[in-house]
Computed example of a mutant assay.
Amino acid sequence: METKHVRTSGAYVLYKGLFPFQVGPTRKGDKLGVVRLGGHREEDETAEETAIREVFEESSMNIQLVNSPFTFFKRDWNDTAIKIKSADDIAPILIKGTEPTASTAMYLAYSKTAPTPSSETCGLLLLSRKDISLICNQKITLERFIGQGGKALLSQRINIGLPLEPFPQLFFLAELFEKEASLMDQVLSGLESGMERR
Rank of each mutant, 00 (worst) to 15 (best):
E196D: 04
P168I: 06
L108I: 06
P115F: 03
E165H: 08
T141I: 07
L126P: 12
L125K: 08
I93K: 04
I84W: 08
R27N: 13
R75C: 01
V55H: 04
R53M: 10
T50H: 06
R144S: 10
R7I: 06
Y15C: 09
G147E: 14
E178K: 11
A109H: 05
F70V: 04
E196C: 06
V55I: 13
N62R: 15
T3L: 15
L191I: 09
S118N: 07
L18W: 10
E48K: 14
E45C: 12
Y15G: 05
I160Q: 14
I90F: 08
I90D: 05
L32M: 03
A105H: 00
S68T: 13
D89K: 13
V35D: 08
E48P: 06
S193V: 00
S133G: 04
T50R: 04
L170C: 14
A81V: 00
K96N: 01
D76C: 05
S111Q: 01
K31D: 08
G123W: 01
F145G: 05
S193G: 04
S9C: 12
A102K: 03
E120L: 03
K112H: 12
L170F: 11
G150S: 01
E143S: 08
E2K: 14
S119A: 15
G194L: 01
L126R: 11
V187A: 00
N159M: 02
E120H: 02
A152Q: 11
F177H: 15
L37C: 12
T8V: 12
I95C: 06
L124M: 04
N78L: 06
T3H: 12
S133I: 03
G33C: 13
I146Y: 11
G149N: 09
E196A: 11
D76W: 07
A11N: 14
G38I: 01
L176R: 15
T101Y: 15
